[in-house]
Amino acid sequence: MTSTLIPPPVERTPRRVVKEPLTRRQRLSRFDLRASPYLYIAPFFVLFALTGLFPLVYTLVVSLHDWQLLQGQGDFVGLANFTEVLQDRFFWNSIGNTLSIFVLSSVPQLVVALVLAAVLDQNLRAKSFWRMSVLLPYVVSPVAVALIFSSVFGEQSGLVNNLLGVVGVEPIEWKNDTLASHVAIATMVNWRWTGYNALILLAAMQAVPRDLHEAAAIDGAGAVRRFFSVTLPGIRPTFVFVMITATIGGLQIFAEPRLFDVSTAGGVGGSERQFQTSVLYLWEMAFFRQDFGKAAAIAWLLFLLIVGIGLINFLLSQRIASAEKAVGSRRERRRSKGARR
């Protein structure tokens, strides 16, 4: 890694023949000019190679071996770990749970964040106060969030079931029932991140040129129409950015399912693994079952999944963008035709 950072010595012989030999000072200054950029970026690249890239590659090595926590490295087994994991129903269960929780958390979260941003984008009094209030849940750590909501969604006497009881709904088995537990965990994620994402979208909305709004208003577009025809297209790049970060984060949920119901099965995601996410499964495989080989295989599969979904996200947004452009230019053409007529 580091060797590629050192620049090849630059040949300057032709000039040197003509010019006087450089003084020590000049040479030092020239070296300073050349080498400094590399010295400045070196700490990052060296540390990143050690703590970011090396583990990724080494994970692959571990995944190709029979490797236990205590015994250490065993025989080379090829892709056996991968095939075993891919045949493991708990693996697929965890993927299903992760995706389910991901959808339950990202879709409502983005919709609410969008609405919230639109409200905050209005000419409110006490702007800072509202922004701060919306961001408050973000400073509560995921572990604390998990503990709070594990209690809020308690089955015998949790806040939610108490409130449901008032309106006559039977208590819901938030920890036993698969879908209910997914909703509960998605709620934790939504609670912490909606305000944060609303602020990002708010910033994007404020960057939409004001004259566009005004022109639309003069053309008779109401507030709702303006939101869909001016604001939304204007913030699309940011919206995609929020979507991708939500994906990367959403697929790595750990603390919430780990701590949602510790009293049963020691925090591996429910007695029936009904809310065991993939990272939680990876953790269980590595540090409960102590099978590092398989855990490493899970890590790589998960890595591919995250990169894959990220790519799909990206391509999808490109598609939408180009489709929109096509529609836009068609409209343009129609308009110019009309004008000619």
Partner: peptide, 25 residues
């Protein structure tokens, strides 16, 4: 400096890597 743009692209690309997954090694 030489290689600046390529290295920057590399930095941006690595932002998407979930480093959590390297916990085993």
């Amino acid at each position: 400096f030489r290689g600046r743009d390529g290295l920057m692209i590399f930095v941006i690309a690595t932002m998407a890597i979930p480093t959590q997954l390297g916990i085993i090694p």
